[in-house]
Amino acid sequence: METIKNYFFMDLSVMLGRSMRHIFRSMDTIITVTITPIAMMLLFVYVFGGAIQTGTANYVNYLLPGILLIAIASGIAYTAYRLFMDMQRGILERFHSMPIARSTVLWGHVLTSLVSNAISVVIIILVALIMGFRSSAGVLSCLAVAGILTLFTLALTWIAVIAGLSAKSVDGAGAFSYPIIFLPFISSAFVPTGTMPSAVRAFAENQPVTSIVNAMRALLSDQPVGNDIWIAAVWCIGIMLVAYFFAMRVYKKRV
């Protein structure tokens, strides 16, 4: 037992290397998780942006947090997909019958999700900078934004693990992400919630994306964040814990 535990990080790095290769060799993944959000950002800034009244001069600044969330939501669909394929192809059984730290099979996918989403977030921010995104945030605020994005990714990743482990088909494995990708549209991510009809507005203002977006926006523009950051953190941590609990239950049942 002792000797096998010692290999945890070694095995984890092999698992990470494996699924990162999967990502870099799949044009489809790269397009969906990076190019599509960038195209959406271009569309909103240069086509719709002129007609949207946000009360801020720089619409790229306003838009970026929501775009990042959409990118992450599409990224985790692939985590579910990769996990599903591992179960289907029997490679999970091969790993489990080997003398490795078994939990690395799952944690490898979780870590891959974090790393790959971080990469696409950085790329999108670089493009946003070219498009005129500017931030007056200090180091602490930047760290807080990174923290929120990490928590958000982790929360969604564990939902993806549930989906990947319990799906019956490839399409099913990714389908759960569509409502999540759609959530930012019914939030303050693209337009202020003030002009929405009251029922929609009530939903928009009380769903997690709005508080996450508002907190990030305030942090990036060096404004006081108020309660938003705590509401955002509670949402992310809450979803993460619940999803983790159910993911582990499905994992123990399926494996």
């Binding site: 494996r18 290769r21 799949s26 192809r89 490679i91 059984e93 091969r94 019958s97 003398p99």
Partner: peptide, 20 residues
């Protein structure tokens, strides 16, 4: 763990990584 150290499984469907 000792069992896993000393065995190997080739399952019913080729358990190879298609992308690698």
């Amino acid at each position: 763990d000792h069992v896993r150290q000393s065995i190997s499984l080739t399952g019913q469907f080729a358990a190879v990584d298609e992308i690698l």
